[in-house]
């Protein structure tokens, strides 16, 4: 990617126009797919012969867990672009991802607990995936608090982005070490329970939900990110012309 392209498409007015055009499409399609996926998952998909109806929580747990990680990856990516090219747009996008990511991580944890209670008989196990999800939440909270506690906008952007990049470097190491710790501590407990292999008619609502969540996420980022861009460009000419 050449520098010129980044300046052209990453310039605040262009991003604003693009995001505002994209947002209604993402939002309506995302909501539509989420509704379809919900109906499919709750009512159409067959009952699991082992777990009964409770497995249907998976249609809400897996998309949020998936999104919590990819949102962090997106935040780290945007932060890297922001640090390297000093791009206002990238900083705005990274900042608007953070609260959404923290909420969706909390959602993944809570739905995971609601899944664990009937399935495993306990809401929390010291399982590798649960623990790294919790640490992911801490990383998000660190980003948000750091950004909120530095008054000056530009410095806050760059400092918080540095933390996000460090988190991206560290996330695989954290995950690996937690997995390693977990295998040594409880080799043969309930942590070995995996999601059972899913067959076609159970799978399609899940995929629809994941795509719907991602589109919804894009819509939120378009809204929040463009609001952040406007905030940072308050004094410039193009903002006053809108």
């Amino acid at each position: 990617m050449s520098l010129k392209a980044i300046y052209k498409y990453g310039s605040p007015p262009n991003f604003y126009r693009f995001a505002m055009k994209l947002e209604p499409w993402c939002f309506s399609l995302g909501v539509f797919l989420i509704v379809i996926g919900t109906i499919g998952g709750l009512f159409i998909a067959p009952k699991d012969y082992q777990m009964g109806d409770a497995y249907r929580i998976i249609y809400f747990h897996v998309p949020s867990a998936y999104l919590s990680m990819s949102a962090y990856a997106a935040m780290g990516f945007a932060s890297t672009i922001g640090i390297v090219w000093r791009s206002t747009v990238a900083f705005s996008v990274a900042k608007s991802i953070a609260p959404f990511g923290a909420l969706i991580t909390a959602l993944a944890l809570i739905t995971g607990m609601l899944w664990g209670k009937p399935m495993w008989g306990t809401a929390w196990v010291w399982d590798a995936r649960l623990t790294s999800e919790f640490i992911l939440l801490l990383l998000y909270l660190g980003y948000i608090t750091l950004h909120a506690s530095i008054k000056e906008q530009k410095r806050a952007d760059r400092a918080a982005s540095l933390v996000a990049i460090l988190g991206i470097i560290n996330l695989p190491i954290i995950h690996y070490s937690v997995v390693w710790w977990n295998t040594l501590h409880q080799a043969s407990t309930i942590s070995k329970i995996d999601a059972p292999s899913i067959v076609g008619e159970m799978l399609w609502p899940l995929l629809v939900m994941i795509i719907g969540y991602s589109l919804f996420f894009s819509a939120v980022i378009c809204r929040g990110g463009s609001a952040e861009v406007l905030m940072r460009e308050k004094r410039s000419k193009w903002v006053k012309e809108i």
Binding site: F27, I34, T38, L42, G52, D53, A54, R56, I57, F60, H61, S64, P99, F100, L103, I104, A106, L107, I110, T111, L114, W115, K117, P118, Y213, F216, A219, V220, R223
Partner: peptide
């Protein structure tokens, strides 16, 4: 069935959070 509360609880929470973020 027996898991009514858990399933509908997670459905409700998910929609609540999506709604709130938007």
């Amino acid at each position: 069935g027996d898991y009514n509360f858990y399933v509908w609880g997670s459905v409700f929470l998910s929609f609540l959070i999506l709604f709130l973020t938007y």
